[in-house]
Design a binder for these strands. Structure first.
Lengths: 349, 349
DNA sequence: CGAGCCTGTGAGAGCGCTCTCACAAGTGGT
DNA sequence: ACCACTTGTGAGAGCGCTCTCACAGGCTCG
């Protein structure tokens, strides 16, 4: 860490209170047994009202808070769920709000259920072990894996160890793990259809990376819809970053000067494409129509504002959380949850 | 959640293995006592080499992983640290990468120390209680509070309960809580000085919200530097969002048409300002110089690329983690860590 | 009026681990 | 050869909680 300066002086805080009240002391104060105190704390109904009140008062007076470790030692549950972000850290938290929005959705749903969120960021293969150890060590009741790469082996491994797991995005290859995904292919078709309907002739695409499910499925949708309309595909491939959008657009312009529309597989890349188009002197939407995918905040602020396919990222997080919660409750869950995408019309088409 | 469709069929995963090996079984297999097995697992050196090996083998054979709850019940430590994000969820995870970068820094440092990260997002006052209960319940060894508002009462409350706490940003008002902050005032002065040195005459600012320390300190720095140069302040106030940057810039232009430079307290607002300037037909940097604050990813992609004051956000996270780790180890720590800011010259000045 | 039943409460075991303490065995000095 | 040590190991208590089971007391019902 560069440029660190530390102020004079020090401060310290004692180790966290060792003298916290236990159930025992609550019971004593309320004049009941530990078992009864436990019943009240856990909301059992089989306790006489006046006793329940006495215990409640004791809890309040003492400021009693149940000890988590002791409780989960006997219940075998921790009330916390891990969210694993498998991506090189640098990419995870670029200014693409994808992961962070997932986190937000997950957090909301876990909150409602009174569960805690343990966030784990893994990048190297070595840290896969860490996650496994952690989950198996009984730190968490379940695991959600938010990976960009559908071929990640981690979810399968965890599932095989008997740990409830849920992933985002259809896993590439066979996998017994429930997943949450959006209708990527359908969204791409929506986009292309829109372009066709608004009279565009030469419709290109800037696809996402082909080792990610989203990238693949959106390209598939683009191709399928064009094929249905008997048109030719014009494809450049990016990696979801702004910079790659710029390069891909330039390449498209060079290869196919007559292009009059582009379906871009992410808003960030679309912003790059817009920039490249402007620099090339093409007007949007007059000369070239541009449609993105995501409906990020940024889509409302590009020039012109970006027509795009909205995917409900926060809902992905929510759905993942709900699935894993049901798994930890021992319920059966459907093998996948599919969320819909929709066209958001703005001014770039 | 809108547009949810669920696939046919169900799948389920059994509750996590109840039949996991315990220390007892490891000891038995290795032909030693539980105490000795524990010694090996915890890396004690006072175990004879051949016994240590036997235990290691037993651990590997059985796939033994220590039970977290049992361990922390006796050690009174959980090996996990909470990061509390106090902001209305919507704002926390907009496309401003501030919080997410903090999370990344924190995560890196916690990883190194083998600690886990528990992420808590609180917004209403009610959930403050939840955090307190959680921390006091012994779920975590320490708490980092990443708040935008320096006046948040939570850190003080936690500290008073004897829980190791660290915050980001100098707390407004008296507080015994160690904090990590960047040299906001100095950074602002750097920016203004740069503007002066490059020959600008009428230097305005778009300040951040005045209920946040960053907003206040940057405005203070701006004023101080101008005062030192015997110039007049021209101030508009935004709220760190892109939209507010647009509005503030328009207002500045209306109030003070002769303005030829603006120090904007965040890159996101600066991007808005750039847009407003362009719409008003002002050229950047020819007519008006613009300098931002943050050095987000976006700063490299504005038109023109944004000169800005870089603040090491990830280092804030790292420093917070290191501080709280030291507190949980019972060490004394300095009351604050100050990180430096620096000028990044690009093409908007 | 006694047998059988709820219903509410307490005693106590035990979750899996760490850590203190006692002790067995080996080492060296006198 | 004896006594102090050191060193390695095991026995066992106990962390704070939940939950099973037994039981006390008050019912209902024949």
């Amino acid at each position: 860490m560069a440029g660190l300066t530390e102020r004079e002086g020090t401060m310290s805080i004692g180790a966290p209170g060792r003298d916290r009240p236990t159930l025992e002391s609550v019971a004593m104060l309320a004049g009941v047994s530990r078992a009864t105190a436990s019943r009240v704390v856990n909301g059992s109904t089989t306790v006489a009202p006046h006793i329940r009140e006495a215990v409640r008062r004791a809890v309040a007076d003492l400021g009693y808070v149940p000890n988590h470790a002791a409780r989960s030692l006997v219940t075998q549950r921790t009330n916390s769920i891990a969210l694993v972000l498998t991506e090189s850290a640098g990419r995870v938290f670029s200014d693409d709000p994808y992961f962070t929005t997932i986190v937000e959705g997950v957090s909301q749903e876990l909150d409602r259920a009174g569960k805690q969120l343990v966030l784990m960021m893994v990048n190297s293969g070595a840290s896969h072990d860490r996650v496994e150890q952690y989950a198996v060590g009984g730190h968490v009741d379940g695991v959600m894996v938010a990976s960009m790469h559908g071929a990640d082996p981690l979810p399968g491994t965890l599932a095989r160890m008997g740990i409830p797991v849920v992933v985002n995005g259809r896993p590439m290859g066979r996998s017994p793990v429930p997943y949450v995904d959006v209708a990527n292919e359908r969204g791409a078709r929506l986009a292309v259809r829109h372009l066709i309907e608004t009279g565009r002739r030469r419709i290109a695409t800037i696809a996402g990376p082909q080792d990610m499910v989203g990238g693949v499925d959106r390209l598939t949708g683009y191709r399928a819809e064009l094929l249905a309309a008997d048109r030719r595909s014009i494809v450049a491939v990016g990696d979801f970053t702004r910079q790659s959008g710029i390069s891909a657009m330039r390449q498209l312009l060079a290869d196919e000067p007559g292009v009059d529309a582009v379906f871009v597989a992410s808003d960030l890349m679309a912003e790059g494409a817009l920039r490249a188009l402007r620099q090339a002197g093409r007007r949007v939407p007059d000369d070239v129509a541009v449609i993105g995918f995501d409906d990020n905040e940024i889509a409302r602020f590009t020039e012109p504002p970006l027509t795009t396919i909205r995917q409900p990222i926060m809902d992905i997080g929510r759905a993942m959380a709900r699935l894993v919660l049901r798994l930890t409750d021992g319920e059966e869950v459907e093998p996948s949850v599919m969320l819909s995408t929709e066209l958001i019309r703005r001014e770039s088409t």
